[in-house]
């Protein structure tokens, strides 16, 4: 078997991620950069615009199956969602239903709402949530891939968790409010955003996977994301608390009731626990956690979850 050097998911641009995730040459972009649908709101504030407004959407093949791909560019305005950017994501989710896609791959790399057009961004994220529910109701799984420089925060942190599966790298980060925001408002004693190890122990892939907020921990390698997404697509595994809502399936209520109990139990963790390290200690896991590679770590958690 041919093996090639890993290509970092984190360092790749949104376009390179799309290329690396799909079967070679299979990607067709919708409303691509040549159409120049840029943000009028950034322009009004004399801020730089991008030809694709920071998100690539289109369709292609994954293991010969038709999929819709959405990839946010974290380096453009922190992957933040504005009017055009959000409308492209919403349109792509709805088109997945039209083309009967086998799955949607949603590469989230975003701090949330774009402040330059904050109201438009907030409404857009709500519209993305509605469109995501519609895709799921049509039986199309949405798979979140989190491993970019911005992680998945703000409204996009919520969107990522609405997905049927959430794949995250060790370097990937997932949360609601970024550490900088918490530090600014609540002070450095609450959250020291410059303590990178602490930030990783709160928001990083390993602790997210530990708590069940992510489905699978991956190496920072596009091929690893591709393989895991293909496996998810084939229905090997779905998130426990994410029912496919085809109308109101009889078990949808029970599934969410079970998720409610699960989340209540987590919230009841000793109030003194404020660090991922304490969570691992509480589970009886020691220093070895930091050293385990993603495959080992997934196996370790799966054994405990059984």
């Amino acid at each position: 078997m041919m093996t090639s050097a890993p290509q970092s998911f984190r360092e790749a641009s949104a376009r390179l991620r799309v290329q690396g995730l799909l079967d070679a040459g299979s990607f067709t972009e919708w409303l691509g950069p040549a159409r120049r649908i840029t943000s009028p709101h950034l322009a009004a504030l004399d801020a730089p615009v991008s030809f694709d407004d920071g998100v690539v959407v289109g369709q292609g093949l994954l293991e010969a199956q038709l999929v819709v791909v959405i990839a946010q560019e974290g380096l453009f305005n922190g992957g933040a969602v504005g009017e055009v950017h959000g409308a492209k994501i919403r349109g792509a989710l709805l088109r997945a239903i039209e083309v009967r896609a086998r799955a949607v791959l949603l590469c989230v790399d975003s701090g949330g709402v774009r402040l330059h057009e904050a109201n438009a961004g907030l409404i857009a994220i709500s519209e993305i949530m509605r469109a995501l529910f519609a895709a799921q109701a049509a039986g199309i799984p949405v798979i979140a891939l989190v491993g970019g420089t911005c992680g998945a925060f703000g409204g996009m942190g919520i969107v990522a968790r609405l997905c049927d599966a959430l794949l995250i790298s060790e370097e990937g980060r997932l949360g609601l409010s970024g550490p900088e925001v918490i530090e600014t408002v609540k002070g450095v004693e609450e959250f020291d955003s410059r303590d990178r190890a602490l930030v990783w122990r709160i928001t990083g892939g390993k602790i997210r996977r530990t708590l069940g907020e992510a489905t699978l921990l991956l190496d920072d390698d596009i091929a690893a994301f591709r393989a895991a997404a293909a496996k998810e697509m084939m229905g090997s595994k779905t998130m426990g608390d994410s029912p496919r809502q085809r109308g109101l399936s009889p078990d949808a209520l029970q599934t969410l009731e079970a998720a409610q109990r699960h989340l209540e139990a987590r919230a009841a963790l000793d109030p003194g626990i404020r660090d991922g390290q304490q969570v691992w200690q509480h589970m009886g896991l020691g220093e070895e956690v930091a050293l385990m590679d993603p495959a080992e770590f997934n196996r370790c958690l799966e054994a405990r979850e059984r």
Partner: peptide, 25 residues
């Protein structure tokens, strides 16, 4: 949203997503 390290550790975004799913249900 509440701004707190403990809440972020618990995965507040996941709780919000759960709430959103319940509303959609």
């Amino acid at each position: 949203q509440a701004l707190s390290r403990r809440e972020e550790l618990l995965g507040l975004n996941g709780y919000f997503a759960h709430l959103a799913r319940c509303v959609n249900l």
